[in-house]
Design a protein around this nucleic acid. Sequence first.
DNA 1: GACGGAAGCA
DNA 2: TGCTTCCGTC
Length: 150
Amino acid sequence: TKTPQMAEVYQWFAFPDWAYKPESSPGSRQIQLWHFILELLQKEEYQNVIAWQGDYGEFVIKDPDEVARLWGIRKCKPHMNYDKLSRALRYYYNKRILHKTKGKRFTYKFNFSKVVLVNYPLLDMAANSPFLLTQNPFNGKKNPVFVWLI
DNA sequence: GACGGAAGCA
DNA sequence: TGCTTCCGTC
């Protein structure tokens, strides 16, 4: 399985300001759900809540109620639940950000074929070979490599 | 549970 | 526009 390598890759995932909605947009500077999902996935303390599992880009929501609760806190939506959160995830299907892993409960997959590196064009070739990122020269927290899905 | 239409909200 | 809310259907 590729999962351990992925854990390394996402350890230094970070989201710059521009990854959030601009102030002009309604719902200004609100985090997007898929940002939030990646944010949880990169933190070891949430491995019992949500974790990479199976194929590359595939993750399992191990505790749907808890993910919904955390999302609700972040968005100030105290009545958030998995039914509503999963509807938001299903809207990602047409946007090609996510798709469902059919037959596997609470399992979704990021369309990482669309991953590009922004800010560091020299590492752009890594988009087709994400594991090159494990050798990233900006390992320190000072210069995280920003990753964006298109 | 998973899907997707429909309406609503900021 | 990116959800949130609600719900009928499978």
